[in-house]
């Protein structure tokens, strides 16, 4: 007889792993007794049925209006269409990256200006930040789209989209920077000043390196949010992903299909970016802890 001393492979079954989703609030409840377990079982059955019915209803609504026919969907298996959408996605990413690359440093400068002790700097910066955070991006885009031609200034479509996005988002990013600086313990600044550093030296060597690390997660998620702002290219007829879907849908009479496909692409792009950001963040924060 052989006795295996190996520990069994720790692998939780799928049901357990699914069951643990969103269970962080379990402390609110007592451990369910037999009666409660029965009720939970009944609720599980009923809610499964209700959810299935909801899905079935949606599918039926698509089907009876002929929107599930293969003709309407097979478009998205054709290479030229896929290439067209890929170009749209690329334009979306381009808008996101360029506006992020401009808005981040601008936001940092604005935050520094607002934090400075000179009223000549901090008053205008505060005004800019507060006002720009309270204006809809669409209004700003319309103002650029319709206002600029009257001044005789002509700028490419790409920049008509980028400039308003950068203007609003730099204000939002500036507030994220500033709140990180504010969140830093006062003792850090005091210590730096006490060892004889000047204001800017303190900022550069003590405050900012820590503040940027603290603000990193919020900054990253704000930059990912730029992906959403890029859809306003739809308004200025810039061929990013959403406007590409509109053109495609109207041209081929596959309106709902095009928007659904593009929505799925946006969800995937967004979740991918968030996952990548999470990875980078973990590495970044990990290093910060070690030093």
């Amino acid at each position: 007889m052989t006795v295996t001393t190996e520990a069994p492979v720790q692998r939780r079954p799928l049901t357990v792993r699914l069951g643990s989703i969103g269970q962080q609030d379990a402390a609110l409840f007592d451990v369910p007794g037999p009666q409660a377990q029965r009720r939970i079982a009944i609720a599980t059955a009923l809610s499964s049925l209700a959810l299935l019915a909801l899905v079935a209803l949606a599918v039926r609504q698509f089907a009876i209006n002929g929107q599930l026919e293969w003709d309407k969907w097979q478009l998205f298996t054709q290479w030229p269409v896929l290439r067209y959408l890929a170009i749209g996605l690329l334009a979306t990413l381009q808008v996101t990256v360029v506006s992020g690359a401009l808005a981040l440093p601008l936001g940092a400068l604005l935050a520094l200006a607002r934090l400075s002790r000179s009223p000549l700097l901090n008053r205008p910066a505060a005004l800019y930040i507060e006002v720009l955070r309270a204006i809809p991006l669409l209004l700003l885009i319309y103002a650029f789209l319709l206002g600029l031609p009257t001044t005789g200034l002509r700028i490419p479509l790409f920049w008509q989209l980028i400039i308003p996005i950068v203007l609003t988002n730099s204000a939002v990013l500036a507030e994220i920077f500033r709140s990180a600086v504010k969140a830093l313990p006062q003792g850090q600044t005091e210590a730096a000043l006490a060892v004889g550093m000047g204001y800017w030296q303190t900022m550069r060597l003590v405050v900012l390196p820590q503040a940027i690390r603290m603000a990193a997660p919020a900054l990253v998620s704000q930059v990912i949010r730029l992906l959403k702002d890029s859809t306003l290219g739809y308004v200025v007829s810039y061929l990013e992903l959403l406007y590409s879907a509109k053109v495609l849908g109207e041209f081929n009479h596959t309106i709902i299909q095009s928007y659904v496909v593009v929505a799925v692409v946006f969800v995937i792009a967004n979740l991918t970016l968030a996952a990548v950001a999470g990875q980078v963040e973990r590495r970044f924060v990990g290093r910060a802890h070690r030093t």
Binding site: Q61, N65, Q67, L227, K228, D229, T231, A263, F266, V267
Partner: peptide, 25 residues
């Protein structure tokens, strides 16, 4: 929540305003 939060609002709006009539709503 995970799905809808990662959609741009304008995508949802266009899907509803131009898409729903296509399925008879």
């Amino acid at each position: 929540v995970e799905l809808v939060r990662s959609l741009p609002l304008l995508v949802l709006l266009t899907l509803f305003v131009f898409g729903l009539p296509e399925i008879g709503l």
